[in-house]
């Protein structure tokens, strides 16, 4: 092998990267994806504003977007504190869901018996409505923050567990044979084959869970908020409802939506960064 003569280099060329035309730093076909939803959004807001003004709808029924925006700026201090609390719970829930979901999925992949015995209970946890058990958790757990975190975690963790379990088991059978042929250890097989193979599904699960963690946090806050023991964005909504401060309710709602969208986009970007070299979902189609 050492004094091997190399074959002449293969003439075929690797598929050339298509030249991407850029406008203001973004590729040309990225623009419609940004502009079209933006146009629709602005048009709807304009229609809303006009309808409210023309019909003189009072702000405690439907506030105009301009009023909501003004309220958002005016109450930014209170709202931002609440937003920060909700964000902390959401990210803590997402991180622990990702960590524990991944660990549990790895455990499942190591032993069919563990998977068979535990997976049904994960399903039970998933199908139990969080609104129904949130009051119990809030009663049982003294620390409100921790109670909220547990609620959000329960909602967020299942997609990661089920997706990663599927991903770990979906490694190509020939590749598994190859690893066996070269006498790879279980750890080697896990890190060099199964985990990378599970990556696309894990990330897809993470993207679903990102939104769910936020929903879980909000729902739990609502439940806790009715007891007056919370201070996140959902509590602001409840509070504003009691006080008939409808514009503030909308402002808080707006912040929740924006948070959800940002989480979705950030996780999508992470997914793209990690998979762009190899996975079909992250590779631009040519032609």
């Amino acid at each position: 092998m050492s004094e091997a003569i190399a074959l002449p280099r293969v003439e075929e060329e690797a598929r050339p990267r298509p030249a991407v035309r850029r406008v203001l730093g973004l590729s040309r076909d990225a623009w419609p994806r940004i502009l079209m939803p933006l146009i629709i959004g602005i048009a709807s807001l304009g229609a809303w504003e006009t309808a409210v003004r023309v019909n003189e709808v009072p702000p405690w029924i439907v506030p105009a977007p301009s009023v909501i925006w003004a309220t958002l700026l005016r109450d930014w201090h209170t709202l931002s504190v609440s937003l920060w609390i909700t964000l902390q719970i959401t990210f803590a829930a997402l991180a622990s869901a990702a960590g524990l979901g991944l660990l549990l999925a790895i455990l499942f992949a190591q032993s069919k018996w563990i998977e068979l015995s535990l997976f049904p209970y994960a399903v039970v946890l998933q199908v139990t409505p969080i609104v129904a058990i949130a009051p119990l958790i809030i009663i049982w757990v003294d620390d409100v923050r921790l109670a909220l975190l547990i609620c959000a975690w329960i909602v967020a963790f299942f997609p990661i567990l089920s997706n990663t379990t599927l991903g770990l088991n979906s490694a190509d059978h020939n590749l598994r044979d190859l690893f066996r042929l070269y006498r790879a250890s279980r750890v080697q097989e896990l890190f060099l084959l199964r985990l990378p193979a599970a990556m696309p599904l894990f990330l897809a699960g993470l993207r679903i869970s990102g939104g769910l963690a936020l929903i879980g946090a909000i729902v739990a806050e609502f439940v806790a908020g009715t007891g007056g023991r919370s201070s996140g964005l959902a509590y602001r909504i409840l509070e504003a409802g009691y006080q008939l401060q409808i514009p503030r309710m909308f402002a808080a709602l707006f912040l929740i939506c924006v948070t959800g969208i940002v989480i979705f986009l950030v996780l999508g970007f992470v997914q793209h960064l990690l998979l762009r070299h190899w996975h079909e979902s992250a590779v631009r189609r040519e032609g």
């Binding site: 190509d172 590749l175 044979d177 084959l193 996975h279």
Partner: peptide
């Protein structure tokens, strides 16, 4: 193998 069976990543 019959397929190239490479690690795509």
């Amino acid at each position: 193998f019959q397929e190239p069976t490479l690690l795509p990543w």
